[in-house]
Design a protein around this nucleic acid. Sequence first.
DNA 1: ATCGTATATCGTCGATCTACGATAGAAATC
DNA 2: GATTTCTATCGTAGATCGACGATATACGAT
Lengths: 110, 110
Amino acid sequence: MATTTAEAFTSETIQLAAWAKALGHPARIAILQTLAERQTCLCGEIVEELPLAQATVSQHLKALKDVGLIEGHSDGPRVCYCPNRSALNRLHEVFEGLFSGLNCSCACCS
Amino acid sequence: MATTTAEAFTSETIQLAAWAKALGHPARIAILQTLAERQTCLCGEIVEELPLAQATVSQHLKALKDVGLIEGHSDGPRVCYCPNRSALNRLHEVFEGLFSGLNCSCACCS
DNA sequence: ATCGTATATCGTCGATCTACGATAGAAATC
DNA sequence: GATTTCTATCGTAGATCGACGATATACGAT
């Protein structure tokens, strides 16, 4: 693993994989959506929204924050999370690039 | 896990997470790109392209096939893999939907 | 200072992932 | 039929994930 990841793939590929991995759990997608839907930036309201323990939600939030997809501003005793628009835009771009390159021109595909 | 995944999230969320999870490894992104770049649908050429053992590549191919992102036609002794355009299009749509919904309107975001 | 609320972190456990070598299966060729 | 080539699968080992309860930390309020 150590050998492969770092040496063989471009940093863009690694970055995209990291983002995709962060989105690779239903709870984290739901968290992103909840963050965006609510008027207020969420904090522990997510815990009420999802059937997960507070520790688990905090873990998922950390995973999203680690790859930059969300931000957390602390607001007194509570923390206000938001989608990070610029990171999401970059992700969007890289994703578009991936998609546009994924046509297949081989013989066996009609 | 059993309780959460099946009951609490929409099937679209679960599907999107599964796709994202499949893209959540640099090798699998590289495989998708290689499949698309090469004129011929790839098979074991991917093994030469990547610094991974044949068994590992086969495993990654299976992961991508399991979520429908690629297809494999057997062509004599070899197998010809291609990106699955219709699945990728669906993924693209769902992703667009996710992105467009992810603006933040909370007070703390300027 | 103390209490109460809100989050984060720790420790743990079972499940899954990732990688590999070894082996089995399928199909063309000899 | 035997051989070769290509791919899939098995078995395994270590790493990471996902979930949780318990605990620590931060901070406003009393």
